[in-house]
Design a protein around this nucleic acid. Structure first.
Length: 282
DNA sequence: AGCCAGGCTAAGA
DNA sequence: TCTTAGCATGGC
């Protein structure tokens, strides 16, 4: 389908680190697996061309109904956020399948984006349901049950290192129904975090990523090493010994109703402009 | 060679 | 409650 998408930039959206199954094609477009479909995405000006899955599915995945300008207007008006918004203009948050998102981020601990993509790809090839698309064999992201029934060795072979044990145990808790992902949506934010953190390998950061990118919970604000650096150097530059708790209190009161969105702009900005953290600008 | 990567966890102060 | 080492592996 073709859609007119205002304030939408595919490049930032698919390369900002929120999803791990997209690759850029030679023509500037992108290809990725969404559910059991291979989706192609391309952009010319503000015309977005999305093919490979039902329009409904695509509209939901890409959150086409969201009014980005309205979201950005809720961000705090400070020099850092202005730079982040200018740099990442058109970046959107996707809505990924919750288990896939959660499992991917369990694999993400202390790894870089490229390596996470490799691990996820290996995992899909090893345990995901195969399907045919465009004459090629593709693999869906493996359901929790498929991961639960795998061996530690199979996961280890996907190069996830010490995360293999966590993913296996988490998949078993989900598959057995001891942790029910379907119930997360109905929980308030603190309860949802608490529930997800019952899974091994899921701490505050991974829980927030899953809630933000998989469940669309905008109040989730993942604090990774980059965001922590950004908060400390950009917003607490003159202060020594700022506790983690203080950072959490700050972001909850400062970034507004779309804090998770703001976080992603900040993350993408500092991640791609490390010099912005070298010496805190004023 | 040594440090760091979209962290989590258990142990010890 | 806060801090730290260990956990695997690869890239620089």
């Amino acid at each position: 389908m073709n859609v007119t998408a205002r304030d939408f930039y595919l490049g930032h959206t698919l390369e900002c680190g929120q999803a791990f199954r997209w690759r850029r094609l030679g023509d500037g477009g992108y290809e990725g697996v969404v559910g059991r479909a291979v989706v192609r995405a391309a952009q010319t000006g503000n015309i977005l061309t999305l093919t490979g899955a039902p329009a409904r599915t695509l509209a939901h995945y890409f959150q086409l109904h969201e009014d980005l300008a309205a979201i950005v207007r809720t961000f705090p008006d400070d020099p850092h956020m202005r730079r982040a918004v200018a740099f990442g203009r058109g970046m959107r948050l996707l809505r990924q399948e919750p288990w896939e998102c959660l499992a991917s981020f369990i694999c993400s601990s202390a790894k870089q984006f490229v390596q996470i993509c490799q691990v996820v790809d290996s995992l899909c090839r090893a345990l995901g349901e195969p399907f045919e698309a465009g004459g090629r064999n593709e693999f869906a992201f493996p359901a929790a049950g498929a991961v639960a029934r795998a061996t530690h060795g199979q996961l280890w072979a996907c190069k996830m290192g010490f995360r293999a044990k966590n993913l296996l145990a988490a998949a078993r808790l989900v598959d057995s129904g001891r942790v029910r992902l379907e119930t997360i949506s109905a929980m308030d934010y603190p309860r949802a975090v608490e529930e997800l953190m019952k899974l091994p390998g899921v701490g505050p950061k991974v829980a927030d990523c899953a809630l933000l990118f998989g469940w669309g919970r905008q109040e989730a604000f993942p604090i990774d090493v980059w965001i922590e650096r950004a908060l400390r150097r950009l917003y607490f530059a003159s202060q020594r010994h700022v506790t983690r708790r203080r950072l959490v209190e700050f972001h909850r009161s400062y970034f507004g109703p779309y804090a998770g969105y703001a976080q992603q702009y900040l993350f993408h900005y500092v991640r791609n402009n490390p010099q912005s953290l070298a010496a805190a600008p004023r």
